[in-house]
Design a protein around this nucleic acid. Structure first.
Lengths: 254, 254
DNA sequence: AGGGTAACAGTCGTGACGACCAAAACCGGA
DNA sequence: TCCGGTTTTGGTCGTCACGACTGTTACCCT
């Protein structure tokens, strides 16, 4: 903040009430994996403007709380999740007219939660749903306000974070198989990864995933039961998997 | 933004005036290279609070402008630079009490400009100076408000951007030698890069730097004159140089 | 003219990574 | 119980990126 040091306006000891008033809100883009696809939690607006349209959850920031606390509160209200399940601020939006009623600046947060069937439990009357991001962004669904842009930015952020932090572990449960973890990368990046190579990259990094003794029950088609891992302490510092360039050069055409 | 969909408060058709009022400001962390070191532009506050302390430039957002426009305006006011010399939003800060006078939420921008001696020209009476970030953050200088944290975050952001975009070219002039460009990486990352390897990495990437025919005049100690390059179009998509792990293994100690 | 310095060119060895193959371990059905 | 299908897991191999290092070119200054 700070007052202009020079520049003329608001010189010395200005009146604290002589500034444009804004409403400050916090919006949370809640992402999760479901059925191998990336989903975003949207709620249907019950009031004007944009009544009946889908939007991301959010609300006013209170003067007594920090931005992060406000985001945490909104997340808990909407999903019941109150753990520190990864809440990252990724942008602020304040275009004039983005809210037709008044001047609103919103600070956007990205929340990653693991697949939960009871996500909508925390919400009351208003409709809420997990929508695949591919549908939410492909003009199939028109989002309220500038929320389409906000969701786009959130997805871009998680894509970037995926190869420089271990944010992928936030998508899966406290214990997971390597195949589960792999689907996170594949869904978010839209690529196909080799299971064996993925395993090697992840396991060789010390302190990233820790094998529990147990094994997961194979699914319907059978297969060798996979070992269950839990996230190590290195997950927030580095990523074992790096997104390669589009890397066109399949040897297939030979 | 959006009103809470449920949750009780502010139900249907609420009064637009029933929300906590905030002041919204935009602060700009202006970084540049000077003498092989990373510098930040600070201004000395002329009014209370924190009168006489150093702070980063900033000011109120106007309801008729976007956040980016406000940042651009502040940057121009402070430096005279009005070109699109890289202006990136990187954070919002709204802790209660961060401004003792009122509720202020600030949106922080990072601006990278090339070394200019006349940076302070745009400013009037108020004192302004380029301070090495190492001094500005090492408790040598106490910054006003939470500006120390904001500068720390800005530096962290530019460090990260350096190996996934070509932000380094924003530090140098429209035409530059590879050694110049290399000092940017070395100063921001605090590492030492081999000139020959750096050259290979940068030049082999197609469309990143484009050789002009001309050559730079060698400095005082002589040496072969370096070729002058200009930034290609790929600079905003990828980086030819990646920051390796701390990578301890210098053979120097032998 | 010669020493110093910096840009530029090339070599070499290590290691990371993707493509690929094969064994192990489980499923379901015949 | 045997067998094909499926998934995990372990291993090999070739390519290539990259750091370390050496040598050459072209300018400075004295």
């Amino acid at each position: 903040m700070t007052t202009k040091t020079g520049g003329g306006q608001v010189p010395a000891g200005y009146d604290p009430s002589r500034f444009p008033a804004f409403a400050v809100t916090v919006d949370v883009v809640i992402l999760t994996m479901s059925g191998g696809r990336l989903h975003v939690l949207l709620v249907r607006r019950g009031v004007a403007p944009y009544k009946g349209m889908w939007a991301i959850p959010g609300g006013f920031k209170r003067p007594t709380e920090t931005l992060g606390e406000a985001a945490k509160r909104e997340l808990a209200q909407e999903t019941g999740v109150d753990s520190a399940s990864l809440l990252t601020q990724f942008g602020a939006y304040g275009d004039p007219g983005r809210d037709p009623r008044m001047n609103v600046v919103t600070v956007a947060y990205l929340a990653v939660i693991r697949e939960v069937g009871a996500v909508v439990a925390g919400t009351d009357a208003a409709e809420a749903a997990l929508i695949p991001v591919s549908e939410a962004l492909n003009e199939q669904i028109e989002l309220a306000f500038d929320h389409a842009q906000i969701v786009r930015d959130a997805v871009e952020r998680v894509r970037a974070d995926l190869d420089l932090t271990g944010i992928a572990t936030a998508f899966v449960g406290p214990t997971f198989t390597l195949a589960e973890l792999r689907t996170v990368y594949e869904a978010v990046w839209g690529v196909q990864l080799d299971g064996a190579n993925f395993r090697r990259s992840v396991v060789t990094v010390d302190g990233w995933v820790i094998p529990t003794g147990r094994r997961a029950r194979p699914g319907a088609p059978g297969g060798k039961p996979a070992e269950l891992y839990r996230a190590g302490r290195m997950w927030k510092y580095s990523s074992p998997i790096r997104r390669s360039q589009p890397n066109e050069r399949r040897k297939a055409d030979s």
